[in-house]
Design a binder for these strands. Structure first.
Length: 644
RNA sequence: GCCGACGUAGCUCAACUCGGCAGAGCAACCGACUUGUAAUCGGUAGGUUACGGGUUCAAGUCCCGUCGUCGGCUCCA
């Protein structure tokens, strides 16, 4: 068994010495509250919140619907559940809501809350329910589902006939609802909620369905908690990678270049090179070999790989050459690596073969999906493909998981969740390669490997890649954003399509398994994450500029330039601020660029071959010999230290 | 892709509900100052108000379209 460092259950902790704020998803906070024996109720996928808060939010959703109906009598209410931080309600309405509508509706909701109206539950027969909601096709569809079995208004499975139909009435409004609700609106503080936004939302989240208009609200137990939430949102905006990325000159987007196609500025270039250097070092130690492959290829390659039928929608349209040949920009690197594997006969003695590449891929994400660096159309993946035998699989797979954990330790990533994504029975032959036995077998292999290693994970059906199960790593940025960083996929199908083989001990040709892995995901997403994780204050080894020399007067500039040249010679990224501003202003500028070390030089330092070291944290280390500073900086860089 | 909001100087924002000469701070540039740990002073320049149409005597402002960004729906690295 491989030794693993860290566990997913390690409690999150702000980075010491950074201006850290901790905006964890509400679910994470709620778990600690659960220990204080407040009754909890589950909602959404695997989340929970205190029952009392759930009731308030749920009731506010109904009050929202009441207010909307008062202003828009033709509106058809659909569903309105409590969610993280508040609630929403979806309506079918002739026109979208305007910000002014929301103001009026919110004011009216407050009036209703202050009227201290009761919520009354009543169980009804199917016939009565159908009569009550005869003008609302959405409610009738929900009733169908409840009666026939299927899914309830929250998309959860119900048994046929097992559902009891109930309605809740408050004031003038009655809604089909399973509850629970507050008994009276006096339980709700009129200043502990507000409406936050409206947007379109498809009925049942399916874009083939009609579009409804959703109104979101925020709701807490007390006005103070609401204010705190709004304040944290404000903090999060300051830490947003899009804002910091521009301020720190890391990346930019240009309309003339295209949506989702980031330009990396020199500072971003440094960060990328450092990440690649780390990956290269780690992967060389782990027995990977580097390869490089083109960005475009003939259509036939993706037909053979099987990507085109599954992924054509996510690919840029092809370009057609004069002879009619069609070429695609590559959305992934694997087919190219398969070709390298296939270039010569392989023996079992050669395996495992690990081919790594920071290859640039292009995916035509829907315009509405693009989001800063987190979701882009051109991306460089920390990609590799491991070809191995079945016997080698477990060790190789765990080697990859171990790699993840090693990276997470370096970056101080303490909160992550591993998800085992499985196929679904319905998807066989459509979304997934049609080979049930191989699916089950491979899923077992992965599950066992994870269990043997003692790595915590949860399982999710119908989330696999088309060619096999995968482990995705969900991480949380410091401002509470959750996303998939790394992915680790088992491919039992595509190697065969490429006729990949090795000659085994018994002299027979066999098909290797392929593990696709990307522990650092893409440069784009990972750096977006790092910017938020560190609030732009990168550890020394990643900081684009590690030290800035600040001469106090013009006569110190030459000495500063000599020292800076010396530092650069020793592998420290140093600059001189030789502008005409005062020293204080230069410190301020360096602070705002979050440069780790500010080296102030005046007469004293110049005379003693020293620099006065000020840390980004504000700490003044006073004057020290240049060599002493170099030793300190080098040590922090070489150990990937998180402190200065 | 769909619904909505937004787009003014490199950045942050003005120019009002009701159309009437497009402005400020920071940054940049020039000059003076030569400073000891988060903003020295003075000056100069910088805009076809995202782009294209329309209404009007007159459009940053009203209308239409396009592009882009953001918030959602959905999916994922």
């Amino acid at each position: 068994m491989l030794k693993l460092g860290g566990t997913a259950s390690t409690p999150p902790r702000p980075n010491a010495g950074q201006e850290a704020i901790c905006l964890l998803p509400e679910g994470a906070r709620m778990q600690s509250q659960a220990l204080q024996d407040e009754p909890m109720i589950a909602y959404g996928k695997g989340k929970q919140m205190p029952l009392s808060l759930y009731k308030k939010r749920h009731s506010l959703a109904h009050i929202l619907a009441q207010a909307v109906l008062e202003f828009f009598p033709d509106a058809k209410p659909t569903i309105g559940p409590p969610v993280e931080s508040g609630f929403y309600y979806d309506f079918a309405v002739p026109r979208p809501f305007t910000p002014e509508d929301l103001q009026r509706i919110e004011a009216r909701m407050r009036e209703i809350v202050k009227k201290h109206v009761d919520f009354v539950r009543r169980e009804v027969s199917e016939e009565e329910a159908r009569a009550l909601f005869k003008d609302n096709p959405f409610k009738l569809e929900l009733i169908d589902g409840l009666v026939r079995g299927g899914t309830d208004e929250y998309g959860e499975k119900t048994d046929a006939g097992a559902a009891v139909l109930s309605v809740y009435t408050q004031d003038t409004f009655t809604d089909l609802c399973r509850g629970p609700h507050v008994e009276n609106t006096r339980e709700i503080h009129p200043d502990a909620f507000c409406l936050s936004q409206s947007s379109g939302a498809y009925w049942r989240g399916d874009e083939r369905n009609p579009m409804l208009q959703r109104i979101y609200g925020l709701a807490f137990d007390t006005p103070e908690e609401l204010q705190r939430y709004l304040h944290l949102q404000e903090e999060a905006r300051r830490r947003d990678h899009r804002k910091l990325g521009a301020e720190l000159e890391i990346f930019l987007f240009d309309e003339e270049i295209g949506p989702g196609l980031p330009l990396w500025q020199p500072n971003g270039g440094v960060i990328i090179e450092q990440l690649e250097a780390l990956a290269k070092r780690v992967e060389e130690e782990a027995g990977y070999e580097r390869v490089r492959t083109p960005h475009v290829t003939k259509e036939s390659l993706f037909l053979r790989s099987g990507h085109l039928p599954y992924y054509a929608d996510s690919m840029y349209p092809p370009m057609t050459l004069e002879d009619g040949e069609r070429y695609y920009l590559k959305p992934m690197n694997c087919p190219f690596h398969h070709k390298i594997y296939a270039a010569k006969p392989r023996s079992y003695r050669d395996l495992p073969i690990r081919l790594a590449e920071y290859g640039t891929c292009y995916r035509y994400e829907q315009s509405g999906e693009l989001f800063g660096l987190m979701r882009v159309r051109s991306m460089q993946m920390n990609d590799a493909h491991i070809y191995c035998t079945e016997e080698q699989f477990e060790q190789e797979f765990l080697g990859v998981v171990n790699l993840y954990l090693r990276y997470f330790a370096i970056f101080g990533i303490e909160k992550y969740v591993m998800r085992l994504s499985l196929h679904s029975e319905e998807g066989l032959g459509k979304k997934y390669v049609d080979n049930r036995e191989l699916w089950l077998k491979t899923e077992d292999m992965v599950r066992n490997a994870m269990r043997h290693a003692g790595v915590p994970f949860y399982e999710a059906e119908n989330e696999a890649a088309f060619y096999g199960p995968k482990i995705d790593v969900q991480i949380y940025s410091a401002i509470g954003r959750e996303f998939t960083l790394a992915t680790n996929q088992v491919d039992f199908a595509v190697p065969a399509r490429f006729n990949l083989t090795y000659v085994d001990r018994d002299g027979r040709e066999k098909t290797p398994l392929c593990i696709h892995r990307a522990p650092l995901g893409t440069h784009e997403r990972f750096i977006g994450f790092l910017i938020e994780h560190f609030a732009g204050a990168f550890p020394v080894w990643l900081a684009p500029v590690q030290a800035v020399l600040i001469p106090i007067a013009d006569r110190h500039v030459e000495y500063c330039q000599r020292v800076a040249a010396d530092l650069r010679h020793q592998g420290i990224r140093a600059r001189v601020d030789d502008g005409t501003e005062r020293m204080q202003n230069k410190i301020r500028k360096a602070q705002m660029m979050k440069i780790p070390y500010m080296l102030v030089v005046g007469d004293k330092e110049q005379q003693t071959s020293a620099v006065a070291v000020r840390l980004r944290t504000g700490e003044d280390l006073k004057a020290m010999p240049v060599e002493a500073f170099v030793a300190r900086a080098k040590e922090k860089i070489q150990t990937y230290a998180l402190d200065l």
